[in-house]
Amino acid sequence: MFKKMEKAKQIENSWDSLVAGVRAGNVRAMARLITRVEDREPGWKDAMKAIWPHTGNARIFGITGSPGTGKSSLTCEIAAELVSRGLSVGIIAVDPSSPFTGGALLGDRLRMKKIFNLKDIFIRSMATRGMLGGLSQAARDVVRIMDAFGKDIILIETVGVGQDEIEVVKAADLVMMVCIPGQGDGIQALKAGVMEIADLYIINKADLPGTDEVMADIQGMLELSSEIGYPVAPVLKTSALKNQGIKDLVETLLTHQAGKNKQEFKRGIQVKEEILTLMEREVFRSIRSRWEHSGELAEAVQQMIDKKKDPYSTVTEMLDHILKE
């Protein structure tokens, strides 16, 4: 009752004021803008257009690796070290959404308590929301909003298991791959998808036995990759829990220059991918909403259920129809 009578104190929710708020360094505005853009509310692209000119200043580091490698703790230590060097840090922590319910349990903050209350830290948990390809775009948008806000460094942390999660770190300038001792088989399994995106390997929990073995595994793998022309990525040892090797790692991150060619090559791929992804989603979205509204989709579904039509010709016919217009 009390609450209803008095007008609740809340922020101005319009796109313009949110974008202005981000530029003015208002944390609540940044958080809300991220939500509205992530939710793809109508008008989000215009807001991102307004954000775009203020981006390009932040450096973006991706952190990936299997579950249990201590990525969140490592991210926390890296962020703490960066802040102690006077840098302002944004963190995007990605966890998977349930494909069945769409819900997600976002728990990375649990490992980042140490930095919760630092003024220069902003942490945002993101769920994958089951959109293949869409996630990397959403992550890119969040990165840009943080960038426009004035964050110097943006860390994207994600589990390196599914395609979705690997897509996310592609939004980064530099990708760290986190491994732990005793993970030999894991390294083999990771080879395929992750090898080409990792710029830096980290052996976390390097105080545990088995560190040398995993080091040998990674180096063996890197030798193979150098034979096919990839630059050899550095391998570093850390222990996030014991705060060992973090200073060196941050030093490496800040000074790392992947071969200029690779950097530009990657940049090219990233930009192309972004345009294609955006295009794909837009096309799909507009076609779907048209089909849904016109009732054509429902009709086609019924025809297929009634065995009057097969899905292949349904799609071809519907597309032909649109392209002709």
Binding site: R28, S97, G102, G103, L105, L106, R109
Partner: peptide
Amino acid sequence: GFEVIYTGLRQTTKQIVNTAIQED
């Protein structure tokens, strides 16, 4: 179907407010 942020034990009220704001 909700996105749930869980922050574990021993949260100060200040941490809770900050988290709620950042996570919107």
